[in-house]
Design a protein around this nucleic acid. Structure first.
Lengths: 330, 330
DNA sequence: TTTACGGTTGCTACCGGTAGCAAAATCTAT
DNA sequence: ATAGATTTTGCTACCGGTAGCAACCGTAAA
């Protein structure tokens, strides 16, 4: 592997000092046009590009942002990752994707990112225990942000979809269609409460005089577990109390629930029962499901987080209004 | 923001020189057990962690690998990203995820990654023009790898699923089921040829005496375009020549094709026509599709790329055998 | 001709580590 | 106790940039 070209090499070739070379690459630096061109030419012929690692060490800015993800099963992650990477890149920031799982926990990941001196850390929809973020070793590191769940932790802003509003929109829609026997199918416990969807759902129906709101919990946010949870719900509920509306905490769970209701129960959707999801994943639009769901305002959310990272806006919780996607399952 | 703790600070607090502190953090370094413990204690109380940026600058190793992705629409990307990030992390490497699109092209991304001194670059299923990689500015940078498509470029190893073998397995399966009028639905041109699936498919049927193999191309690898391409195929083909087998280049296309065939043509699958996909995305298993497909050996592929990055194995093309997933659509 | 001034250039010090040599400290054998 | 071997420690130089001061330059005003 050939030795890397440094500013020093270019300087020698252009007959100036290395600082003049640096200036040629620093926008707005004080340098004579004549020498700037000479340097640029020499740099071009030597194929020189400034070493961002060295720059980062000196400026204490890496222009790297770590994204922590713990659930790659949720297809909703992919489109958001696309928006995230793209918007970050537009501002000259690069994305460091960190996979959190039972072998590499949050604290570990956070410390790791910290050692790499990233400029910010985004916890993207991960199921962490809030206490964790108060760890001494984490305070004092890169600024933290929480994307797509709430945070409650001072100094860790959460950027979310406005869940109470979203649920109100959905429920008012269901209500106007005449559904009156609601049930909620939620996902993994730890994250579920942080999402607040069930809470908002229940609140609506209690305020609208529903005697009770059925509920069931899936082991994880996957279609398979959605199927399983739906099975439990219907098997453990007497037929005459079966819901006519099943709100699922996300699309994946809804797909599973639809599969169960259609294939095993042979119920008609939306006549016998309405089913809705959340996230508007690509598949929700497919004719096989054609799922009524709710789209999170991903672009606004990412834009907001970016403004905070860049210091253009104060670091504080923000919730954005999403969009009800009305299709044929409800 | 508090000043960062450096080895120097720890040294002062422990009453040794900064080099002794460094040694305490360097596995296998020559240091007395007594002073190692003293340093570790001081480091602990000051909450010191070595600065990996500075280390990278000095060692010329960042322990970062760039992954270039240009198609976030394909849900297959997510599980592979999970495997990639996880395996890289297990070896102490971090993933830099770079989004390639019309505004930020391959050359730009490659140069960007190069400036950041990443240890390796993986082109993950991206649709690049091979000439591009021969750009002077790119040669001499970090070692390149191509994942999940072929490469043809000397010194840029491609790690793939063994496509000819996969197609043979699939076709033999179809053949044994009695299907004899094959058609192929392919995706975006640039990538399609690099995948080689159509080629292998055609080769089989020509060898097995099929008069002709119908073919149609979708604008991109999405369900929507799959639907559209299926429409074109069936509308432009006289009814008596309709295929009884439609092999789609990936699952997303297959979902679209199934939707079209079911909802518009009202054909029965697999009785009137068999449809198969490729990749075994999570949704292929759902009862709504229950798609026969082929699973790429993602873990083996990632493991192979990792061994090459770590220098444990020579850099060379590798193809692995995947697995036929037989479900109800074929 | 001298002086003042703004643009330009070079310099030192520094970011926080690593590499490897040389001196110091400790241990072992005589 | 002492020489010799070995471990431990401190040091200089370096990775490739940045920051900001000081000197230099040519030119225009005095």
């Amino acid at each position: 592997m050939a030795k890397r070209v440094t500013a020093e090499d270019v300087a020698r070739s252009a007959g100036v000092s290395k600082w003049t070379v640096i200036r040629a690459f620093t926008p707005g630096a004080s340098i004579a046009e004549k020498s700037r061109l000479r340097v640029l030419e020499a740099a071009e012929s030597l194929n020189y590009r400034p070493n961002l690692l060295a720059r980062s060490l000196a400026t204490n800015l890496t222009h790297q942002v770590a994204i922590l993800v713990d659930d790659f099963k949720n297809p909703h992650k992919l489109p958001v990752l696309e928006i995230l990477t793209w918007q970050l890149q537009s501002e000259g920031l690069l994305t460091v994707l960190i996979n959190i799982n039972e072998h590499f926990d949050h604290v570990q990941a956070l410390l790791d990112a910290g050692q790499r001196q990233v400029d910010a850390i985004i916890l993207f929809g991960t199921a962490f225990r809030p206490e964790m973020l108060e760890d001494d070793r984490i305070q004092g590191g890169a600024p933290l942000y929480v994307l797509a769940r709430d945070s409650q932790i001072p100094n860790v802003p959460a950027i979310t979809c406005d869940t109470p509003l979203a649920m109100r929109e959905l429920c008012e829609y269901f209500y106007s269609k005449g559904y009156r026997r609601p049930a909620f199918l939620s996902g993994a416990k730890t994250l579920s409460t942080a999402l607040g969807r069930r809470r908002a759902f229940n609140a609506f129906w209690e305020a609208h005089g529903a005697k009770s709101v059925l509920g069931v919990s899936a082991a994880s946010y996957s279609s398979g577990h959605g199927f399983e949870a739906a099975r439990i719900l219907f098997q453990e509920t007497p037929r005459e109390q079966w819901p006519d509306l099943l709100m699922c905490e996300n699309d994946a769970l809804a797909f599973g629930a639809i599969d169960y209701v259609r294939s095993t129960l042979k119920l008609r959707i939306p006549d016998d029962i309405a089913i809705a999801g959340f996230d508007n994943t690509p598949l929700a639009a497919s004719p096989a499901y054609d799922l009524t769901t709710y789209e999170q305002p991903a672009i606004e959310m990412v834009t907001a987080i970016l403004s905070m990272i860049l210091g253009r806006e104060p670091r504080e919780n923000k919730a954005f209004r999403g969009k009800l996607i009305s299709r044929s399952t409800a």
